[in-house]
């Protein structure tokens, strides 16, 4: 039984890792076509990618979008999670369904919808929403925030459920207003969930290709959309180099999430938060 399961496990890991194991070496080739095994070893395609103004532009767009999406998604998600966990209100189940909606609705459907709202907008009597945002950074930010904010909402809600509401009442009875109680007591305790949510929100935008391809054009485009377009047209190792860079950023984000998970043990998170708890 044991050797069989070992073999199955090994094959599964290889199957999952294969694309990664192939792309990274391919990006190091000295040749001018994407091939495996690579023809020699060099960093010339990385150099090519990072000096090409078109790729640099896409990296800059992707980065701005992903960072803005992370901030918006974490703020909106934390507020939504707080309301959903701490308060009872009519229609709570419906709000939860709406929060989880972007995770369930097919990306193509979402992308089509976002395209019409952001590109042409829609009118309701004298009110007009959206329009003119296709091919812009704000348009991408709005579209990706919709995709990303369920992650911080769910993760913060989970953290928040484990924080006794009496802690906030205790803070209040000691003279802390609602915002202070949140900042000094609740926030430090939900920080692991919040950082995890931020990482997933960042990644949701950073490697998103479907919705982005609806909203990008030749002037404003993101890295994943560029790679996708590149693979269709030419088999240029630059795409492999950029893919590997994309992967490294993603791995770095997961390391951050892993470290955030460790903050749960109180002795580690104690020092920085205690200082702010007393001085402010």
């Amino acid at each position: 039984m044991r050797p069989v399961s070992t073999v199955v496990t090994t094959l599964t890991v290889i199957a999952v890792m294969m694309p990664v194991l192939v792309v990274a070496p391919m990006s190091l080739t000295t040749g001018s076509t994407v091939q495996f095994p690579p023809d020699g070893l060099s960093l010339k395609w990385y150099e090519a990618a990072l000096t090409d103004p078109v790729w640099l532009d896409r990296i800059w767009v992707s980065l701005r979008v992903a960072v803005a999406v992370t901030v918006l998604a974490v703020v909106i998600g934390t507020m939504a999670a707080y309301a959903l966990v701490r308060f009872d209100f009519p229609g709570k189940g419906l709000v939860w369904a709406l929060v989880l909606g972007p995770l369930v609705v097919p990306l193509v459907v979402l992308g089509t919808g976002e395209f019409f709202v952001l590109a042409t907008g829609w009118s309701l009597g004298p009110l007009h929403f959206g329009g003119g945002l296709a091919g812009t950074v704000p348009g991408l930010i709005l579209a990706h925030t919709v995709l990303a904010f369920p992650y911080p909402t769910v993760l913060v809600a989970t953290s928040l459920r484990s924080v006794d509401a009496n802690l906030e009442r205790a803070a209040s009875s000691l003279g802390a207003g609602p915002f202070q109680a949140f900042r000094l007591v609740t926030l430090p305790l939900i920080l692991p969930g919040l950082v995890g949510g931020a990482v997933f929100a960042f990644l949701a935008s950073w490697d998103e290709v479907v919705v982005a391809s609806f909203l990008t054009n030749s002037q404003v485009s993101t890295v994943p959309v560029g790679i996708f377009a590149g693979l269709n047209q030419t088999l240029d190792p630059t795409a492999a180099a950029i893919s590997t860079l994309l992967l490294l950023v993603g791995l770095a984000a997961l390391v951050v999430a892993g470290l955030a998970g460790r903050m749960r043990s109180p002795s580690r998170s104690a020092e920085p938060t205690t200082a702010s708890g007393v001085n402010s």
Binding site: L167, R169, A171, S172, S173, A270, G277
Partner: peptide
């Protein structure tokens, strides 16, 4: 509001802040 009442409260399960010493 409770934070302006200046009334101390000791909870049944104490509600100590777990992130502070």
């Amino acid at each position: 509001p409770s934070h302006k009442r200046d009334i101390g409260f000791v909870f049944q399960d104490y509600a100590l802040f777990p992130h502070l010493d």
